[in-house]
Design a protein around this nucleic acid. Sequence first.
DNA 1: CTGTTAGCGCGTTCAA
DNA 2: TTGAACGCGCTAACAG
Lengths: 332, 332
Amino acid sequence: MAATIKDIAKLAHVSIATVSRILSDRTESHTEETIARVRKAAKELAYQKNTAAIELVTKKSNVVAVIVSATPTNFSNQIIDGIQKKAAKHHLAVIILYAGENNTELQRKALQTVAERSVMGILLLAINLSPANLKFLTKSTIPFVFLALSFQDKTIPFIASDDFQIAYQATNFLISKGHRKIGLAAADFHISYTGYRRLAGYQKAMQEHQLQLVPDWVQDGNYSYQSGRRAIQAYMKNTQVTAVIANSDLAAMGVANQALDFGLSIPNDLSIISIDGTDFCTMFRPQLTSMTQSFYEMGSQGIDCLLNRKLSTAAQRFTAVSIQERESVKNI
Amino acid sequence: MAATIKDIAKLAHVSIATVSRILSDRTESHTEETIARVRKAAKELAYQKNTAAIELVTKKSNVVAVIVSATPTNFSNQIIDGIQKKAAKHHLAVIILYAGENNTELQRKALQTVAERSVMGILLLAINLSPANLKFLTKSTIPFVFLALSFQDKTIPFIASDDFQIAYQATNFLISKGHRKIGLAAADFHISYTGYRRLAGYQKAMQEHQLQLVPDWVQDGNYSYQSGRRAIQAYMKNTQVTAVIANSDLAAMGVANQALDFGLSIPNDLSIISIDGTDFCTMFRPQLTSMTQSFYEMGSQGIDCLLNRKLSTAAQRFTAVSIQERESVKNI
DNA sequence: CTGTTAGCGCGTTCAA
DNA sequence: TTGAACGCGCTAACAG
């Protein structure tokens, strides 16, 4: 079977303690000759260290767990990319677990899995934890940070965009283009803090410009493609809206396609600004103007945060958002 | 710190062996009363089992590792979904590791990570392993299966679509619609077995119909959006092609957009059939006709395969492909 | 029905 | 500079 340090010790005629030291690069006080002999033996036996044993004795782990939702978002890849790159720099291994979409059971299972493995930290990508699961997490002593999701609670660490600002700026942008009747589509305004804040940002901008707030212009959803379609289906009874803020790129595509299906032209009949700014914005026609979030940065900072955390500081950070003008918003 | 079975034993006034048995549901020979007492104590201490310790002694693991490439494909989610569902049924935990795109270094690192953890199996999603890494994997005694990628070598287990058939059927479909000048775009025909087989299927179909094989109609690439665009850029010098087979949905979108940018209409001026059939086919306009692969099924069967493998049987299975007619192919 | 004991593979004192 | 011995938390015989 797999070789152990004991085998190496035997082959190299040294003690296991010596092997242990040398293989973990604690070579300060060892003969060049011994070191070489041990290394050679290790290679010969194709030695693979047993992480379970190491973690058992050191009570440490160098893997960070990323929990992602199977949600219809597509920015996860960018975040994971950021996580991956930064983690590699610090010699951390990263494992990813799926937790379904608002599935308490699956969330619990994922949390359980990582807790049993005593990972060094947990990154939660756009995961809306149930209260019970959140409590489980906070009690677990494992450092964690939420990514791409913000909280009102000051004790929960997160790295995300300022959702109020996103919607506020998007609305102002549309207003600056001459729009007065602006829809807000496909977010869970009454469920998540994210949705709540975006609604607030939108309302603030509208009010600051003495613009009418029509309830029907705000269409609930879950950031999905279908949510986007449904928003336009609802607007149809009320074609006054000249521009809509879609709460995800996927939703924006749904909005656009349903509008197209209704015979509307974009952006001539309807302007769209999308929130996220992933690659799909340029792959769709017309190319989607977007409020672009710094997903890569979120992932990268997530690792930093885990590394620096002394188990007490609850860091809450906002990453930059910027507006990318493409083809889906028209000056009217 | 975290409670151990020793703590529970003390609290419940039993031995650690009893605790161990009860907590792992080996309750056959235990008093209802003891069981209750132990369970209560465990709950009280918020006991979390230490997986590292368990794996150390049992030399078993119930986690399967999935290695995915950061490649510009988008079907991974479907495969992972299939893996997840089937794994849950068997009480397996799944962890996912990224291995970059044809990055030997990252591949090695991912392989190393899972080898050190002695997972119970490895699923490789569309990963083109370097020869050295493949050798490392085969020597490791850990069961593995490639997903969405086939091999000529009969000893390498995989579950994938029959790439020859995919291209053969796609080509025949186009021919049945009246097309004679058919392009094949955006695969790595001279690098991967997948590309090689698809090229062969295409050529076979063309030849069977006495159709001309024009080298320029076959455009190399890497399944990416940009590959798709480049193919059309190349065709421009040679506008004879009336239909193209795009080797991925992303590539198909690239093909379509570049054609659009050149002023072509789809499918009037150019028909497109896409290989993959993910959600993007219906989110794109015109909706993409596709050769749809059974990705979910691949993931699901991948777990079965791992479970049934006696470390010797090299299973090679093909999953179904079907053609979904949508809007991007025109009868001429 | 339950307890005792011996490791699993490794890092870490403490001596030598 | 090196080695012997202990223990991390747990399971698996083997007693009783």
